[in-house]
Simulated assay, not measured.
Amino acid sequence: MKLTRIAPLGALVAASALILAGCASNEAAADGNTPSGDSSAAALSGTINGIGSSAQGTAQQTWIAGIQTANPDLNINYDPQGSGAGRKSFISGAADFAGSDAALSDDELAGSFAMCADGTKAIDLPVYISPIAIAYNLEGVDDLKLDAATIAGIFSGKITTWNDPQIAALNEGADLPDASITVVHRSDDSGTTQNFTEYLAANAADAWGQEPSQTFPFQVGDAAKGTSGVAEATKSAKNSITYIDESGAAGLSIAQLKVGDTFVKISADGAAAVVADSPLVEGRADGDLAIDIDRTDTQDGAWPLVLVSYLIACQQYQDADTASLVSSYIQYVASSEAQQAAAAQAGSAPLSAELSAQVIAAAQTIK
């Protein structure tokens, strides 16, 4: 079961103090100044606002608690409205940074960003890796097994009962009821939906029949907003099923996923292994670390139904104070201490040492 409390603040305070000292040291090396003008470099002050991914919600609570406790004059607000809302708010200038389970699209990058200096763009920095669960509420079935084609059939509305022969063939001996399946999906534009549909398009294209999208493409079942919304809707409806960031799946059963010829149980390690095997998206600006996830990875234990969630920031802000705070916050978030704290609370996979170093280096270039 996932923990819902915030990790002990003492550990987070110590971690944030260490990373912030490192942030300021790096900035001092570049321009001779620290964000606060104090050589101790531990004190940040001011306010920045983020909007975005609800999957990041628990992690953001953890990160913000750590950095703000070490810096009482720092105020970071994060509103988990969803990835689509986060990107739109950042593009329009309503947020200083965005959390998104999908990187900026080519069309979005071709436009302008209200917070960014003229002639500069935004960059995608991965900070949160988590498996997406196929979570269900089905009495008497504790170890459901599904493959991509069957998941596609269920969520497209082609498979409508739990004892359908396609489900039964994967679950020999299970007592599957003759009951209608209630599909629960996101009502809002969602990076989780983007990752879910990318997985189905890559592994069950014929059964799914749709291009990847942040908008759920079928008029089937019940719709709910955000990670918490689909979790509550699934818990409230017998014989229901949803796709959800694992951090929100507490209290629900989680299906095993057929990967290659083997059924695999969900794990953060399996999600992290897929990300480690995946290249960066080609053609992006320096400092943009969008990842081209290999959805067909079949290595032992792999969980290719994975989301990589980003903090989206300007390469260069119009306001230097905002730039300094966003840069320091991202460097803290990508640190080993902050990543481990989020893993303890959200069940996410910490960034690898290599990816953490890349994100911190990219955040240091924000100005």
Rank of each mutant, 00 (worst) to 15 (best):
T62D: 04
K88R: 15
E232Y: 09
M1D: 09
Q364E: 14
E246R: 12
D164C: 09
L3P: 00
F196N: 15
I134H: 15
A17S: 11
I254C: 05
T47L: 15
A43F: 02
S54E: 12
K88H: 07
D188I: 08
K88Y: 00
A133F: 12
T365Q: 12
S105M: 12
A169N: 02
A174Q: 06
V230H: 01
V326M: 03
D189F: 08
Q60V: 03
V333R: 00
S236T: 11
D206A: 15
E198N: 12
Q256P: 00
D142F: 05
L104W: 00
A276F: 06
L289P: 08
S112I: 15
G50R: 04
A363P: 11
V326N: 05
G57V: 06
G260F: 07
G283N: 02
I64V: 13
A179K: 04
N137L: 11
E198M: 15
L12D: 08
V264D: 06
I330Y: 00
S267T: 06
M115H: 12
Y136N: 04
L200W: 01
D261K: 10
F97S: 09
S253K: 13
F113K: 04
A363N: 05
I76Q: 05
A168L: 08
A323P: 01
G57T: 14
A224M: 07
L170G: 05
D269A: 14
K121R: 09
D124V: 00
D189K: 06
L144K: 07
A169H: 04
E354Y: 01
D188V: 10
A114K: 03
S213W: 03
S278E: 05
A313D: 05
N49R: 09
D31Y: 02
A272L: 13
L252Q: 08
D79K: 03
G260K: 07
S228L: 13
A117H: 04
T182I: 10
S356D: 08
A55W: 03
N239G: 02
I181H: 03
L325P: 00
T192A: 11
